[in-house]
Computed example of a mutant assay.
Amino acid sequence: MTAQTNIATSRSAGRGVLLMCIGIACLSVNDAIAKTLTTSYAPVQILFLRNAIALIPALLIAYFAGGWPALQSRKPMAHLLRGAVWTGAAILFFTGLRSLGLAEATTLIFAAPIFIIALSSLFLKEQVGWRRWGAACVGFIGVLVVVRPGGEVFQVVALFPVGTAALYALMMIGARWVDPGESGWTMMLYLVGAGALISGAISPFFWTPIRAEDIWLFLGIAFFGTAGMTLITQAFRFSAASIVAQFEYTGLVWATLLGWWIWGTVPDATTVIGAAIIVSSGLFIIFREGQAK
């Protein structure tokens, strides 16, 4: 019985890792499409159309996965606040993509665990040991290596993905605002809905008529964005967070390959070094959190 249980657990963990890797690949394609669209459209318009197109599929996924309870929330304002934070994060990221390479912007996004530690200690009063604080400081050094403040190649827009990482961390911490009885499907649905509502209120001020040849790109960004979020949500259901979270960093590989394939850009040596520092820091934080749990 123990052997069978171990096999089942191993298969479940393997399924979770596979879903995480595919989900991250989908989000990487989503980011590549967004970078392409930012040359012609405002980030808030891209975000609105992505969420608006994805809203019906997200509604259907939530319903068939969780039934009517997945469509209801006892704390809708909590979802609206998280949606506002997520909207700000996406706008900052898409704005940064206009000028930065896909791999560089993706690298800076992975500074999120650093901010999660700081925000957990500040707002949730969680006890954070010196090892995780040390890893966070090392990760921040990696961010500085990539951004290169004061250097000749420094770009202010490089701070936008860093801001995205901070807001993403706040959104993750904000999951505590949501009723703990609500499912991941409910959170996904309301996040997409709140994002569509908020970006829809802003986008008319930045609206550009959509060209016919770009319609497939907007459909693509909605598909890959929704698929990525759904698969990652399922990955955390099949396996422990401390296991699947490590595979988020496969996004760096996809971002590098897509950047090279579409735009012919390759991260320079300094960015690679900074990425290695950030990833090492993040993996250590994940390892320590897994031990704590």
Rank of each mutant, 00 (worst) to 15 (best):
Q4D: 15
T9S: 12
R15G: 15
G16D: 08
G16S: 10
V17H: 01
V17K: 00
V17A: 02
C21G: 00
I24Q: 02
A25F: 14
C26N: 04
L27P: 01
V29D: 05
N30Y: 12
D31H: 10
A32R: 07
I33W: 11
T36H: 14
T38F: 07
T39M: 12
Y41K: 11
L47R: 13
F48Y: 13
A52D: 07
I53W: 09
L55Q: 06
I56T: 14
L60N: 09
F64M: 10
G67S: 11
W68L: 14
A70R: 09
A70F: 09
L71Q: 07
Q72R: 15
Q72I: 15
R74W: 08
M77G: 11
A78D: 02
A78E: 03
A78Q: 03
H79V: 10
H79P: 08
L80K: 04
L80W: 07
R82M: 08
G83Q: 08
A84K: 07
T87W: 03
T87D: 00
G88P: 06
L92M: 14
F93G: 01
F93K: 00
G96Q: 01
S99E: 12
S99G: 15
A105C: 02
F110A: 03
P113Y: 01
I114L: 10
I114D: 01
F115M: 00
A118T: 02
L119F: 13
S121E: 10
S121R: 13
L122W: 09
K125A: 12
W130I: 13
R132T: 02
W133P: 03
W133Y: 11
A136R: 02
V138H: 03
V138T: 13
G142D: 06
V143K: 02
R148P: 06
E152G: 00
E152R: 11
E152H: 11
E152K: 11
E152V: 13
F154G: 03
V156M: 13
V156Q: 10
L159N: 09
F160G: 06
V162P: 07
L167K: 04
L167A: 14
M171G: 14
R176F: 06
E182H: 08
E182L: 14
G184H: 07
W185P: 00
L189W: 02
L189I: 08
V192I: 15
A194L: 03
L197D: 00
F205M: 14
F206T: 05
I210R: 02
R211P: 00
E213G: 13
I215M: 14
L217M: 14
F218R: 06
F218D: 10
F218G: 08
G220S: 10
I221N: 05
F224T: 15
L231F: 10
A240S: 12
V244R: 00
A245I: 04
E248C: 05
V253L: 15
T256E: 06
L257R: 05
L257I: 15
I262C: 09
W263G: 03
G264P: 06
P267I: 11
D268W: 09
D268H: 11
I273D: 05
G274V: 08
I277L: 07
I278W: 05
I278Y: 04
I278S: 03
I286S: 04
I286G: 00
R288V: 05
R288A: 09
A292W: 00
K293A: 15
